[in-house]
Amino acid sequence: SRSVIRSIIKSSKLNIDHKDYLLDLLNDVKGSKDLKEFHKMLTAILA
């Protein structure tokens, strides 16, 4: 869910600018399909 993804971003080791950017992107995501794609992208970034 959106709140879980937000929590993953906030607890990541990324610097604050990257976190803010990803949180802004997350706010722009519409629909469950796009949310799944965003989660895939985030997982790849944090891997």
Results as ranks from 00 to 15, higher is better:
residue 1 S to L: 15
residue 1 S to D: 13
residue 1 S to R: 11
residue 1 S to A: 15
residue 1 S to N: 11
residue 2 R to L: 15
residue 2 R to D: 06
residue 2 R to H: 10
residue 2 R to G: 05
residue 2 R to M: 11
residue 2 R to T: 09
residue 2 R to N: 06
residue 2 R to F: 10
residue 3 S to V: 10
residue 3 S to Q: 13
residue 3 S to R: 08
residue 3 S to I: 08
residue 3 S to W: 04
residue 4 V to D: 08
residue 4 V to S: 10
residue 4 V to M: 09
residue 4 V to K: 10
residue 4 V to W: 03
residue 4 V to T: 10
residue 5 I to W: 01
residue 5 I to P: 01
residue 5 I to L: 07
residue 5 I to R: 01
residue 5 I to T: 03
residue 5 I to A: 05
residue 5 I to Y: 02
residue 6 R to S: 10
residue 6 R to Y: 03
residue 6 R to T: 08
residue 6 R to L: 05
residue 6 R to V: 15
residue 6 R to K: 12
residue 6 R to A: 13
residue 7 S to N: 15
residue 7 S to W: 06
residue 7 S to K: 11
residue 7 S to R: 08
residue 7 S to Q: 10
residue 7 S to M: 07
residue 8 I to P: 00
residue 8 I to M: 14
residue 8 I to F: 04
residue 8 I to S: 03
residue 8 I to K: 04
residue 9 I to W: 00
residue 9 I to S: 00
residue 9 I to C: 02
residue 9 I to H: 00
residue 9 I to N: 00
residue 9 I to R: 03
residue 9 I to D: 01
residue 9 I to P: 00
residue 9 I to A: 01
residue 10 K to T: 06
residue 10 K to N: 13
residue 10 K to G: 06
residue 10 K to E: 14
residue 11 S to G: 11
residue 11 S to V: 05
residue 11 S to K: 13
residue 11 S to E: 15
residue 11 S to M: 12
residue 11 S to I: 05
residue 11 S to W: 04
residue 11 S to Y: 05
residue 11 S to Q: 10
residue 12 S to Q: 02
residue 12 S to Y: 01
residue 12 S to I: 04
residue 12 S to M: 04
residue 12 S to T: 03
residue 12 S to L: 04
residue 12 S to R: 01
residue 13 K to M: 13
residue 13 K to T: 15
residue 13 K to Q: 11
residue 14 L to R: 02
residue 14 L to A: 03
residue 14 L to I: 06
residue 15 N to S: 13
residue 15 N to R: 06
residue 15 N to F: 08
residue 15 N to Y: 05
residue 15 N to A: 14
residue 15 N to E: 13
residue 15 N to Q: 11
residue 16 I to E: 15
residue 16 I to Y: 10
residue 16 I to A: 15
residue 16 I to T: 15
residue 16 I to R: 13
residue 16 I to D: 15
residue 16 I to L: 09
residue 16 I to W: 09
residue 17 D to L: 09
residue 17 D to W: 09
residue 17 D to N: 09
residue 17 D to F: 07
residue 17 D to E: 14
residue 17 D to K: 15
residue 17 D to G: 05
residue 17 D to I: 15
residue 18 H to I: 15
residue 18 H to P: 02
residue 18 H to Y: 14
residue 18 H to W: 14
residue 18 H to S: 11
residue 18 H to T: 14
residue 18 H to C: 15
residue 18 H to L: 15
residue 19 K to V: 07
residue 19 K to C: 04
residue 19 K to D: 01
residue 20 D to M: 14
residue 20 D to E: 15
residue 20 D to H: 13
residue 20 D to Y: 11
residue 20 D to T: 15
residue 20 D to V: 11
residue 21 Y to D: 04
residue 21 Y to A: 10
residue 21 Y to P: 00
residue 21 Y to L: 11
residue 21 Y to H: 08
residue 22 L to H: 00
residue 22 L to F: 06
residue 22 L to S: 00
residue 22 L to W: 04
residue 22 L to I: 03
residue 22 L to A: 02
residue 22 L to V: 02
residue 23 L to C: 06
residue 23 L to Y: 08
residue 23 L to E: 04
residue 23 L to F: 05
residue 23 L to A: 02
residue 23 L to S: 03
residue 23 L to V: 04
residue 23 L to P: 00
residue 24 D to S: 14
residue 24 D to W: 08
residue 24 D to M: 12
residue 24 D to N: 12
residue 24 D to K: 15
residue 24 D to Y: 09
residue 24 D to C: 12
residue 24 D to H: 14
residue 24 D to F: 09
residue 24 D to R: 13
residue 24 D to Q: 15
residue 25 L to K: 07
residue 25 L to Q: 05
residue 25 L to R: 05
residue 25 L to N: 02
residue 26 L to W: 03
residue 26 L to G: 00
residue 26 L to R: 01
residue 26 L to Y: 01
residue 26 L to V: 03
residue 26 L to H: 00
residue 27 N to D: 10
residue 27 N to Q: 10
residue 27 N to S: 11
residue 28 D to S: 15
residue 28 D to R: 15
residue 28 D to P: 02
residue 28 D to M: 13
residue 28 D to N: 15
residue 29 V to F: 05
residue 29 V to I: 13
residue 29 V to H: 04
residue 29 V to E: 03
residue 29 V to A: 07
residue 30 K to D: 07
residue 30 K to L: 07
residue 30 K to G: 06
residue 30 K to A: 07
residue 30 K to F: 07
residue 30 K to N: 08
residue 30 K to M: 08
residue 31 G to Q: 06
residue 31 G to S: 14
residue 31 G to L: 09
residue 31 G to H: 09
residue 31 G to V: 05
residue 31 G to T: 14
residue 32 S to Y: 10
residue 32 S to R: 10
residue 32 S to F: 12
residue 32 S to I: 15
residue 32 S to V: 11
residue 32 S to K: 13
residue 32 S to A: 15
residue 33 K to Q: 09
residue 33 K to L: 10
residue 33 K to G: 07
residue 33 K to H: 12
residue 33 K to A: 13
residue 33 K to V: 12
residue 34 D to K: 11
residue 34 D to H: 11
residue 34 D to Y: 09
residue 34 D to M: 13
residue 34 D to R: 09
residue 34 D to N: 14
residue 34 D to W: 08
residue 35 L to I: 07
residue 35 L to G: 01
residue 35 L to C: 04
residue 35 L to M: 09
residue 35 L to P: 01
residue 35 L to D: 02
residue 35 L to H: 02
residue 35 L to S: 01
residue 35 L to K: 02
residue 36 K to F: 13
residue 36 K to Q: 11
residue 36 K to N: 08
residue 36 K to V: 12
residue 37 E to G: 07
residue 37 E to K: 13
residue 37 E to Y: 07
residue 37 E to S: 09
residue 37 E to V: 07
residue 37 E to L: 08
residue 38 F to C: 02
residue 38 F to W: 03
residue 38 F to Q: 00
residue 38 F to N: 00
residue 38 F to S: 00
residue 38 F to A: 00
residue 38 F to Y: 04
residue 38 F to T: 01
residue 38 F to E: 01
residue 39 H to D: 06
residue 39 H to C: 10
residue 39 H to K: 09
residue 40 K to N: 11
residue 40 K to H: 08
residue 40 K to V: 07
residue 40 K to Y: 05
residue 40 K to W: 05
residue 41 M to Y: 11
residue 41 M to A: 06
residue 41 M to G: 03
residue 41 M to T: 06
residue 41 M to Q: 07
residue 41 M to V: 05
residue 41 M to S: 04
residue 41 M to C: 09
residue 41 M to W: 14
residue 41 M to E: 06
residue 41 M to P: 00
residue 42 L to I: 13
residue 42 L to F: 03
residue 42 L to G: 00
residue 42 L to R: 00
residue 42 L to A: 02
residue 42 L to W: 02
residue 43 T to I: 13
residue 43 T to C: 09
residue 43 T to R: 10
residue 43 T to A: 11
residue 44 A to K: 15
residue 44 A to W: 05
residue 44 A to I: 11
residue 45 I to C: 04
residue 45 I to N: 02
residue 45 I to E: 04
residue 45 I to A: 05
residue 45 I to Y: 07
residue 45 I to F: 08
residue 45 I to G: 01
residue 45 I to L: 12
residue 46 L to F: 05
residue 46 L to E: 01
residue 46 L to Y: 01
residue 46 L to G: 01
residue 46 L to C: 04
residue 46 L to V: 05
residue 46 L to P: 00
residue 47 A to N: 10
residue 47 A to E: 11
residue 47 A to V: 09
residue 47 A to W: 03
residue 47 A to D: 09
residue 47 A to G: 12
residue 47 A to L: 09
residue 47 A to I: 10
